[in-house]
Design a binder for these strands. Structure first.
Lengths: 339, 339
DNA sequence: TTGAAAGCGCTAACAT
DNA sequence: ATGTTAGCGCTTTCAA
């Protein structure tokens, strides 16, 4: 366990104090931007810091102050899904943007089931001041308990009774689904199927409800439902099941564009033309929507803004500012060629 | 700076010791799997830990032991490029796999120029026991200095004189490029152009050299060179410049499949058929190669294995085991339809 | 405004 | 095998 080449051990605050000719307390004050330091003292310390190349030791600092100035972004997915889903990319971008103007540092935790315990420990061990939990697709109940231990902001409404007390940023999935479905109805479609997400995920449940809302309001039947997990493969299989039913339909609302993209393949295999035979709308104006053929008409979520907002809210909570528990961001329908 | 709801402060080792009826040292020994603990003591401690829900405080631990059991994976790119490049996804997967069977935790640092100082500070502040620097495309010289401070393993040979002392995992880019070019020659092509990477990156330089090696050995001209950064857009522009020269060619070696994919668009615009008019080989059998039309004949790198190896080597270094400074992993040509 | 001194929660000699 | 005792490098009262 010994390092092969013992590196030049880092300069300590004590050494800085010696060089600057002040006490350790004063050095600490300068580092922490305390106003109660004379200009001369401050400058002497700054010079010493520069001269020695001093960087405060995080462990010592956080042990003494009980602050880490780090936050975790927890993504309960496996690595493959993480990279396959453009949603994460934009949210992270938003988080990173919000953080870059602060002292806070980001710890990215991609936590497949297998490493769950390691991640929990990491968080409980005081490595971070708070956590962001981004559960676009996955189940996040495991992390609700965390919220009792430290400030946590969720991306997407957490399911379950404990979710009632959680802080989260989300879009109005139900309204978004309703709008997407209404667009199909406005286009004159009357037999509208849906491929819904999993029943144990908020986005799955809410988007299905929104689809029903629209159909009910228009007096249309809402029986053509197939569920799938939010992947192209899931969409492909769901569409095959839908077609196998033998009940014809002239429109599809897919709960995500990944689902729609899989469904498109299955429809092409079946010789169905889009939008001639079946028109389609979906949610997520992402890579899968814009690169589909035809380009999908889809609801756009403000993904970068979700990330930015989550980070800002978390820091507000960490620093004791009051924030509202629920933040809903607006969505908009973006016209493509599929409906 | 005060938490709005002060969370129940975490149990300490001292409390565990009290509950278990042993000294703090014994608790510490149990936590650290020391063999010198009686079974009874170990069990008493384990029970106390479970009962209290105790998790050791990382800061205290690392302050006392000077170990963090965390390593950083530094990616000197902006977030957008990070997600656009499938290379990173696989390498990270490899790193994560290697780490999951260890006590080590991963800190992912995506460091655009703007946040460089924050990242450097993070690393110098003792947050990690070592760092992996993955510079597929970007310049990494800034991180060579880091290697004097802590164990560092690079992914890809670092450029510059300091690179001579760096530990790294890489493939033989020169040989890979030579093989890819020889494949074109074996196909009867004689006027072979290349789109090379940047001159300040090892992969850029080495792959160009390999192309030259093959042409020289075959007695063919090696004048048709255009450089670009490793993106589809770069490849597109480079191909346009190549075409604008007015010198005809019947084959192209692209230094990466992203470059090739951009080049393909430009060739399609120019009415060139692949592989009829121009055959193509490239490096990276990734998404861009397999989804190109026609599918690219490309050199496959063992990307997951690169990540796995980097992580293993870094941990070996951290724990004082001897490792060889340079590790070269094998590549193989994967036949597509482009050559 | 500054310094002295007491910890933060843990590990690691050193005794026993 | 276990306990005692110093710290690890910093922040933070409290006095001056």
């Amino acid at each position: 366990m010994t390092l092969e080449t013992s590196p030049p051990s880092a300069p300590t605050l004590e050494q800085v104090a010696a060089v600057a000719g002040v006490s350790r307390a004063t050095v600490s004050r300068v580092i922490n931007d305390s106003p109660k330091v004379t200009v001369e003292a401050r400058e002497a310390v700054s010079r010493a810091i520069a001269e020695l190349g001093y960087v405060p030791n995080r462990a010592a600092r956080s042990l003494a102050s009980r602050r880490t100035f780090a936050i975790a972004l927890v993504i309960p997915e496996n690595t493959a899904k993480f990279f396959a889903d453009p949603y994460f990319a934009s949210v992270i971008q938003g988080v990173a943007m919000a953080l870059s103007s602060t002292k806070y540092t980001l710890s990215l935790l991609i936590t497949p089931e297998t490493d769950a315990e390691k991640s929990r420990n990491f968080l409980q061990a005081g490595n971070v001041d708070g956590a962001l939990v981004l559960s676009h697709h996955s189940d996040d109940r495991a992390f609700l308990a965390l919220a009792r231990t430290m400030p946590v902001v969720f991306g997407g409404r957490p399911m379950g009774p404990e979710g009632e007390h959680a802080f989260y940023v989300d879009v109005d999935n139900r309204a978004a689904a309703r709008v997407a479905t209404e667009h199909l109805i406005a286009g004159g479609r009357t037999r509208i199927a849906t491929i819904a997400g999993p029943a144990d995920m908020a986005a799955g449940v809410d988007r299905l409800d929104g689809w029903r809302d629209a159909l009910n309001a228009a007096g249309l039947a809402s029986s053509l439902v197939e569920r799938a997990d939010f992947t192209p493969a899931g969409g492909f299989e769901a569409m095959r099941r839908l077609l196998a039913r033998g009940e014809s339909f002239d429109a599809l609302f897919a709960a995500s564009s990944q689902l729609a993209s899989g469904a498109l393949s299955a429809m092409r295999d079946a010789g169905l033309a889009v939008p001639a035979d079946v028109s389609i709308t979906s949610i997520d104006n992402d890579y899968f929507a814009t690169n589909a053929n035809p380009r999908l008409t889809a609801i756009e979520q403000p993904t970068v803004e979700v990330g930015r907002t989550m980070a800002r809210l978390l820091i507000d909570r960490i620093e004791g500012r009051e924030i509202s528990r629920v933040t809903i961001l607006p969505t908009a329908l973006v016209q493509g060629q599929s409906a």
